[in-house]
């Protein structure tokens, strides 16, 4: 009986959470559809969520590109297929690691910041004050962050793709003596423009997930400072899980039926 109760409670909680996320998304979409957007706040958020995440994204992408190159360059050399290394780095970065790692890093930094900021505003009654002043917290707090993140995450992903390839190219030269020209030729030959575009589409979806989950977690904060900490952790964990799940679904839908080039 207790097990059934637990299952029931878990199911109710899941449905409540999913409904809350859907409702917040619909509310935000309505404001965006009506062009009720606060542009100055959106630019400020783009700076905070996007520009200020650049260094950490570039660092993680640089080392990811280098490690792919490190793992593949020597092997490829020993089999006499060093002309594939550039393609391998570009292929993996553009389709999977570029968008996903960028999203995970940004979820850790910006997603946590969103949940913490909104959670603090909830416990200090600032969100309720917005409502009391006849203002919509969704319009004021969610919409600018959503537009900023859905714009900035693809841009960060472009930078991530580029720096991963550059890092990979440098390491391929240092470790396996693969000339830059050969590496670039391989990138051109084995990676498709289409892959980069689909990677950017993924980034848009990941940006949406990070902001909606961060905002929803922030809004449902209760119990003071401890609650803020809990919401922040929840925002990061749930965002990352959803990023991985949606990445699989999108990879399957976008690339799954096409054989590798």
């Amino acid at each position: 009986m207790k097990v059934l109760e637990e299952v029931g409670r878990g199911t109710t909680g899941f449905l409540e959470y999913t409904g809350g996320i859907a409702s917040l998304s619909a509310d935000a979409a309505t404001f965006i559809g009506r062009m009720r957007i606060r542009f100055s706040e959106t630019i400020a958020q783009a700076y905070f969520l996007g520009v200020q995440s650049t260094t950490i994204v570039l660092l993680t992408s640089l080392f990811t590109g280098m490690v792919i190159s490190l793992e593949s360059a020597n092997q490829a050399n020993s089999f006499g297929v060093s002309n594939l290394v550039g393609g391998a780095v570009a292929y993996v970065s553009s389709r999977e690691l570029g968008p996903m790692l960028t999203a995970v890093v940004v979820a850790g930094r910006a997603g946590a910041a969103i949940a913490a900021e909104l959670g603090s505003m909830v416990v200090t009654e600032q969100v309720e004050a917005l409502e009391a002043l006849g203002l919509s917290p969704t319009q004021i707090l969610v919409v600018p962050r959503l537009i900023a993140m859905m714009t900035m995450l693809p841009i960060l992903t472009i930078f991530a793709d580029i720096i991963a390839i550059v890092g990979g190219m440098y390491l391929a030269k240092v470790v396996a003596g693969i000339p830059y020209g050969e590496f670039v030729q391989s990138v051109r030959e084995y990676s498709a423009f289409d892959d980069y575009m689909k990677g950017l589409l993924k980034a848009v979806v990941f940006g949406f997930i990070i902001v909606i989950v961060g905002c929803y977690q922030g809004f449902r904060t209760r119990n003071g400072a401890a609650g803020v900490g809990k919401s922040t952790t929840g925002a990061v964990v749930i965002s990352i899980i959803l990023i991985f799940i949606s990445n699989f679904i999108m990879s399957f839908a976008l690339f799954g039926t096409r054989p590798a080039d």
Binding site: E125, G134, L135
Partner: peptide, 19 residues
């Protein structure tokens, strides 16, 4: 309801000023 609230002032216990 959001529009209606413009006609009512609310002073919160801890002020709730936007920091």
């Amino acid at each position: 309801l959001i529009d209606f609230r413009q006609r009512i002032g609310f002073a919160f216990q801890f002020s709730a000023l936007f920091d």
